[in-house]
Amino acid sequence: MERSKTVRKGTAYWILGVFAIIWAVITLYPFIVTIFSSLKTNDEILGSMLNLPRDPVWHNYYVAITGAKTLHTIMNSIFLAVCSTAGVLLFGSMLAYVISRKKHKYNKIIFTIFLTGIVLPIYATLVPMMKMISKIDILQPNAFYTLILIYIAICLPEGLFIMAGYMRGISRELDEAAIIDGCNTPQLFFRILLPISKPALATSAIITFLACYNEMIFALLFITDKAKYTVSIGLLYFVGKKTTDMGPMFAAIILTTLPMLVFYMLFQEKIQSGLTAGAVKG
């Protein structure tokens, strides 16, 4: 036993170890270069990205915040993501409850409708959606609620399947006992079922929050008002321009990734398992 273990450590262990370190460098080094560049003057960046910043130019961050309104875009994106997540959790869990715990004839149809929602490419909706928004007066472009409603619709299927899958596993006797005790449906749902389903709610919340914070295409289509720019549109503004001030651009990249990085460090395990579950279900 001991010997075979050392043999295995001998070759594959070291080769894989070296590969792991190389991949870690490949993953981290670009971010390190970006951090360095965010603290450099333009001349320094054009000189060589490899060098350390000579004298940290914190002014770049000031320009990114005041000029490109980066903090503002971050707040907008967080607001959109929080509202959409709340919507997906509420509507998704309600749907999940009926689909997973009740026996209605229409359940199967509803399930199929949402299943197609996961498979279909949302890009096919771009043109009709644009037309619809320009035609229907209550759906204003440049209004966050329009985007929030769209985001909820897009993220609903994935959240629904995660929550329905979880609720299916909860014993049905619980419902019967609650009904005998005189609970009506909302009481049963909000007081008993939702608290038990917390793990599934957390997973759906994480997936939805990340997707909405990072969303680009619908924001790009419907938001033209600069005060309402999201993170993605704010950054797209820089793309492809060999601008005179690259420092602030790198600063903006760092600033916009920071909230997600903190979020990731706080809920690492949950985010990793949640996104994997989401991808596999999808």
Binding site: G87, F91, G92, M94, L95, Y97, V98, K102, H104, Y106, I110, I113, F114, G117, L120, I122, A124, T125, P128, M129, M132, L149, I150, I152, A153, I154, L156, P157, L160, N184, T185, P186, F189
Partner: peptide, 22 residues
Amino acid sequence: WWDLAFIIPGLFLFVVFLIIPL
């Protein structure tokens, strides 16, 4: 009736913003 009330908001959004545009 409660079950229907639970289904409708989510289904409505999904149909209006995804199925109809598609």
